[in-house]
């Protein structure tokens, strides 16, 4: 299949869908290539969104409606593995041999969740009641938070910064959303299990978003979530089958040991595999954090080092949904200017 469109959008997650939808509304023809069988990206897996705890599906529906546009051709199961070409005409190839030609490209390959098994000391995959934040979202969606044996957890610990701010796994950066996710999830656990005790083990509470700090406060005031400043060093299993954690309560200046029924690892964000592949088969540059590096941190955060190839969303850095959507719209502005200028030149 060989086709030529105005814009190829690589990645059908939040940023890619928003960018495709906005371009289509302005009359541009778009191919939206998504490597999975369905668009929607990570959002499909999230239950409630912070800060207002609305259902993630509402935003999903908005995006689904946005991309229902005659100017958009969605190609699912299409993993773009390389881009070649120069300003004016780009040729992208997919893993199944498809070729797409476009005048401009938006890269929206997003992020992958950190593989928590890499933090061996937490025993994810070994101890059945050590789960990730993504696993917990699934439990929320399925309606109940249960232990591996079907029991109801009485104590749940949330470990912040799993795969973020950690030289040991090669990620020096902060994933930015895990703190607020932990707070949100702790509150939701309280709503699902009455009398549950929850503990957030944090290095710093990074509540840098609108209404984040207010949720943090609500978690303390209304739900009694305990916040312990100290990163858990290891998880093991006691004779009674409960998990045992070791941390330092840095504010008490003493080590702390505690039994928990469930441990939730707040997995960070990493450059996606799809992005890695694309970077390997194109001349797109990446930063030290392995995400795509933008032409200018402040004034050109949508531009790449290839003229005519733009970025949208978390392929450049961790972002929340609000920011991803804003960043995608900004990318559209850049693409529209680029195509208009190009057209003027061509005429």
């Amino acid at each position: 299949m060989n086709s030529m469109v105005d814009v190829l959008v690589i990645g059908g997650g939040v940023a890619g869908m928003e960018a495709a939808g906005q371009l289509a509304r302005s009359g541009y023809s778009v191919i939206l290539a998504e490597k999975e069988p369905l668009t929607g990206g990570h959002l499909k897996n999230w239950y409630h969104l912070f800060p207002d705890r609305r259902d993630g599906n509402e935003v999903g529906e908005y995006l689904d409606n946005l991309v229902k546009n005659k100017n958009i051709e969605i190609r699912n199961n299409t993993c773009i593995t390389g881009i070649t070409g120069r300003k004016g005409k780009f040729t992208a190839t997919a893993s199944d041999g498809q070729v797409v030609e476009a005048e401009a490209v938006i890269v929206a390959t997003g992020f992958d969740l950190f593989d928590s098994r890499r933090k061996e000391e937490y025993g994810y995959g070994i101890y059945p009641n050590v789960i990730t934040s993504a696993d917990l979202e699934k439990m929320f969606r399925n309606g109940s938070v249960k232990l591996a044996d079907g029991g109801v957890p009485a104590r749940i610990g949330f470990i912040h910064c799993v795969g973020s701010r950690d030289e040991k796994v090669g990620n020096l950066y902060c994933s930015k959303l895990c703190c607020i996710t932990a707070v949100k999830q702790a509150m939701e656990v309280h709503e699902k299990i009455s009398g549950v005790k929850t503990f957030c083990f944090y290095m710093d509470m990074r509540m840098g978003g609108a209404y984040y700090e207010e949720i943090y406060r609500e978690a303390q005031e209304k739900y009694g979530v305990s916040f312990i400043r100290g990163k858990v060093s290891e998880v093991s299993q006691g004779y009674n089958g409960r998990l045992v954690i070791k941390a330092e309560d840095t504010l008490a200046g003493r080590p702390l040991r505690m039994e928990l029924d469930m441990v939730v690892l707040m997995a960070g964000m990493e450059m996606s595999d799809a992005g890695e592949i694309l970077a390997g088969k194109s001349s797109l540059r990446r930063g030290e954090n392995r995400f795509f590096s933008t032409a200018d941190n402040h004034t050109a955060s949508n531009r790449s080092n290839m003229k005519g190839v733009f970025y949208a969303g978390t392929c450049t850095a961790p972002m929340n949904i609000t920011e991803s959507i804003s960043h995608a719209r900004a990318a559209v502005t850049e693409v529209v200017s680029y195509l208009r200028e190009k057209k003027q030149r061509d005429e």
Binding site: R117, E120, Y124, G125, I126, Y127, P128, Q237
Partner: peptide
Amino acid sequence: MNEPDKKRIW
């Protein structure tokens, strides 16, 4: 304990 994952670490 989950054996397959321990084996993976090993």
